[in-house]
Every structure is written in C-alpha cells, then in structure tokens.
Design a binder for these strands. Structure first.
Length: 286
DNA sequence: AGGCAGGTGGCCA
DNA sequence: TGGCCACCTGCC
C-alpha cells in the first residue's frame, strides 16, 4: 500500500482536481483534508488520489486495481490542454476567464452503467443528496469490495429489487424510473454496451427511450460515462449562464443546446464543464 | 411554513 | 411547440 505516480507533470491544479472529482460529474468522492487527498469509488475500485509537486499520485485500497485502471478513469491520455486551447476562448472572454480559473479541469471516463444510474438520481437534486442516494444503493444492494465499502449495484441487481425497496433508499419518485430502466437493461445486457459504442446522436436517442432519461440526463451520462464530448447538457446552471453572459434570455432548451454546439464546437461538453464550474463557484460574479 | 433543487413525462391548447 | 403540473425528499 503505497503512493504511485499516475501522471508526472500533471496539468491538474489543486482547484481543478477538486472540481473534477467533486463538481458533479461523479458522486462517490470524499475529500480527505488531513492527507490533502481524495478518496473515490468506481466499479470495484477504491482509490486515494493526491497532487504533490506537480505529480498526480494514487494509492489503491483494492488489490486488483492497477495504475492503468486509474489512468483510464481519469482519461489521462487525453491531451486536455490542447482540447481547452481548441475551445473558442480567443473570441469569448467569459469562457477564457472560466478556463483560466479552472486550468486543468477535465472530464472523467466513468463506467457507463454507473453514470446512467447516478444521473437517473440527479433529477431536481443537489450533489449532496445524489451522493446520499448512491451510498444508500451501494450499501443496501451493491457488492462489498473493501472494508465497509460496496460497489454501486449493477442493473441486474437493481432489477431484483422492488420499487418499494428502492423507495426506502430515499430515491423518491426516481425509484419508479430506476426500477423500470433496470428491468429493461437486465433483460438486454448488451444494450448499454451498444449505446456506448454508437455515435453521439444514436446513443442519445437510445438513452432517451429509457424511463426517466431525457435529454439532460442522457447528455450527462454520455459526457461523463462515454467520453462523447459533443454532448452538451442543458441544466439550470448552464441556462443561467447562457442567459446572463450570452444574452440568450427566453430561449428554449433545444435552442440553448443548438447555440452550445454551434458556438463551442465539437467539444461543447468540455466548454460546458468550465462554464458550469465557474457558475457554481461564483453564481453572482460578473 | 413553503419553496426550491444539475428533470421528465403527461396532458391540453 | 409551449405552458402547466405532479412527482419524493431534505434543506434553507
């Protein structure tokens, strides 16, 4: 059990690492202030991460976890600085400011099935509540993987629960959607892998067929779970940003999504994450 | 005490 | 299409 270097000369700053792990892409990370580190859980992995002297280091608490598993989750081989430079910040001073404030921010590549589940929980919920729902599902349904730590349940495991059981996990009205989606996904285990392999428009259309998944949740699942960076989730935060800073007052959500794709380009979802982080951190700042 | 929160789906003009 | 509205739950 020791610290291993995951990325020497990492582009992360403490701020952008923190925002990447705790800013609403993933819901199973805990800050460890005493160690200046972060503890996270995905799939069957339990990992501590810290930034020290421009080096990103990790410690696996599960024996089967390799540095390559961690690099894949963190999308370490993606050239994030180049992706950010390709965004239209030269003609968009607000975007330039957001990129500056969160230099090194990136999009995680989480297990797709877990991302779909977490964002099915996200409807009209804030991050702390989504975390509680994920922990409840893991504790009560998921498989144990480490000392008092459980994986998120698989869709197969969820399909074996009743809606009533799920409601006890403070999922609220989301329980019905999760149950119905679980029945569909358990009956066809190839569906999510097929969606992940499809193009963005095909994948989004297929996801929106599932109960409780509309455009916003589909875009989040594709952006954070399949690395399809053209996905541009239109949520309450980005609506506020586009209204106030891009003068898009009174626009419909599809109009806002269209604007995002046109203005920010093929990696609009990456731009969205910078705007989202900035808006969340300083909603009133001009 | 009541409104609101990283939405979606149904219903009605 | 566009505008309600219900839907669980917890926090301010």
């Amino acid at each position: 059990m020791h610290w291993q270097t995951i990325e020497p000369n990492t582009p992360f700053t403490q701020t952008s690492l923190h925002e990447t792990l705790h800013g609403g892409q993933a819901f199973r990370w805990t800050p460890l202030p005493a160690e200046q580190a972060h503890l996270g859980i995905w799939s069957t992995h339990v990992v501590k991460i810290r930034l020290q002297n421009q080096s990103l280091q990790a410690q696996s608490l599960t024996t089967q976890t390799t540095p390559e598993d961690i690099r894949q989750y963190l999308a370490s081989s993606t050239h994030w600085a180049k992706l950010a430079d390709d965004l239209p910040w030269r003609s968009d001073s607000h975007l330039a400011n957001c990129i500056d404030n969160f230099r090194g921010l990136r999009l995680l590549k989480q297990p797709f099935a877990e991302t779909v589940l977490a964002f099915l929980c996200s409807a009209t919920k804030q991050i702390p509540q989504i975390k509680v729902m994920c922990e409840n599902m893991a504790r009560e349904i998921g498989a144990p993987i480490s000392d008092r730590i459980h994986s998120l349940p698989t869709w197969e495991q969820l399909s074996e629960c009743t809606e009533t059981q799920l409601r006890k996990l403070s999922l609220g009205f989301r329980a019905k959607n999760i149950k119905k989606t679980a029945d569909i996904l358990a009956a066809d285990p190839s569906l999510l892998p097929q969606i992940e392999a499809a193009t963005y428009p095909e994948a989004k259309a297929a996801l929106c067929e599932l109960p409780g998944i509309g455009e916003k949740i589909a875009d989040c699942a594709l952006l954070f779970g399949t690395a399809k960076y053209e996905a541009f989730p239109v949520d309450t935060w980005i609506i506020k940003t586009l209204e106030r800073r891009y003068k898009a007052t009174g626009w419909s959500n599809p109009q806002l999504a269209h604007f995002g794709r046109i203005h920010f380009g093929s990696h609009a979802g990456y731009a969205q994450q910078f705007l989202f982080s900035h808006e969340r951190a300083s909603p009133k700042d001009q």
